[in-house]
Design a protein around this nucleic acid. Sequence first.
DNA 1: CTAAAAACTTAAGCGCGCTTAATATTTTAG
DNA 2: CTAAAATATTAAGCGCGCTTAAGTTTTTAG
Lengths: 219, 219
Amino acid sequence: MEDPKENYLKTIVKLQKGGEHVKPTLIAEALGVTPSAVTDMAKTLQKDGHVDYVPYQGVRLTVKGQMKGLTMIRRHRIWELYLHKVLGYSWDQVHEEAEMLEHASTDTLINKLEEVLQYPLYDPHGDPIPSKTGQLPPQRDFIMLSAVAPGTCVTVLRVNDHDDGFLRYLDEIGVHIQGQIEVKEKRDFDQSLKVSISGKEVTLSHFAAQNIFVTKEES
Amino acid sequence: MEDPKENYLKTIVKLQKGGEHVKPTLIAEALGVTPSAVTDMAKTLQKDGHVDYVPYQGVRLTVKGQMKGLTMIRRHRIWELYLHKVLGYSWDQVHEEAEMLEHASTDTLINKLEEVLQYPLYDPHGDPIPSKTGQLPPQRDFIMLSAVAPGTCVTVLRVNDHDDGFLRYLDEIGVHIQGQIEVKEKRDFDQSLKVSISGKEVTLSHFAAQNIFVTKEES
DNA sequence: CTAAAAACTTAAGCGCGCTTAATATTTTAG
DNA sequence: CTAAAATATTAAGCGCGCTTAAGTTTTTAG
Ligand SMILES: [Mn+2]
Ligand SMILES: [Mn+2]
Ligand SMILES: [Mn+2]
Ligand SMILES: [Mn+2]
């Protein structure tokens, strides 16, 4: 009911940093299945020509698999942005809907949405959108907000989108992509930050500050 | 990969004219499966409470099944209209895409699209769109264009959407929903019609004229 | 270097939705 | 009314993607 193969490839693209083999357990955890399900699928994807599978090592994407995985990420992020910008979804609501739509959309439709959005480079959480040909926009230099020195003003480039509750919290305190944050003070005992967001003072936990990514240089 | 149950219910709603049981063969033909697949699914849908199934008679939708089926038709037609009106798809391209999207959309999304479209009553082919509560717009009195007397001018209310080639042909000769057609002449030997569509004279076969539905009274 | 732990694969089996082939029922024709 | 034809159901089995349990390989610790 939701095309497992497409989700495997999308996940493997995200996990494959560099040319190494991706370990089954990682994939299993990301997808919420058992390791043996991953072994099975590894063989299937190899037959399809989407991965190279080496027993006890893991899988590595072929060019075909890489492209297919990037296509899925593209579909997901374009849908997230369309739902957000055009249909008024908040950034904590887009993921779930996009998770289904990405499997039910032709490339024609995705390209049309991209055109309506005027060829965007980033999704609502600041994650890069692969182009039709699988190109990613140039890598940006960002750092965790937790690593910013007090007295600095930075621009939000990306936030961790793994938890809807966290996203709702960010919305509540006024954190947006491309919004400004001024770091006023860092409390050494718990690493929490006193920051100012569009005039309002807020305290951010170390955890929160580690999940907000900002420009390296003050702006 | 495309939720069979939803397609069964949608199909059964369309086939169930009146309160009679729908025969397995009809469903099988509509869905392109064997009759035995329908028997199996009839039992499953009965367990779900979506139909009453009487062996050798067929299935009849329960209230729950009727609602679910109407919801699917609603999703399909709203998507078709959105693709057509907002995203610029032609009326022969909308069906295929809608056929997938209908299974991947929450009611929240569908309601949002409906709002953007300003609560439309009909899809791009003139078929009625069920409301959130399963209500259909009032039944319109239309007749086949083939039954219109020469000398009459009528408005197109609906066209048969079963064949994309037919839809492309209609587009080519200028037939649109709410467009005007004047019937000039009927040739007795083959029942073909000479008609005028926005000033242009066209000959329509009897077959074509039987698949265009128009206002009963001249307008 | 070796034994225990962790990671991975294999084996067996399940639910779903489908098929074909065999069987049963209903409808139609004569 | 009956035999043939049409329609429907049952039986057996298949592919997919998953699970648990058992067995294998690799990694880690001592
Ligand atoms: Mn997402
Ligand atoms: Mn995102
Ligand atoms: Mn359609
Ligand atoms: Mn339609």
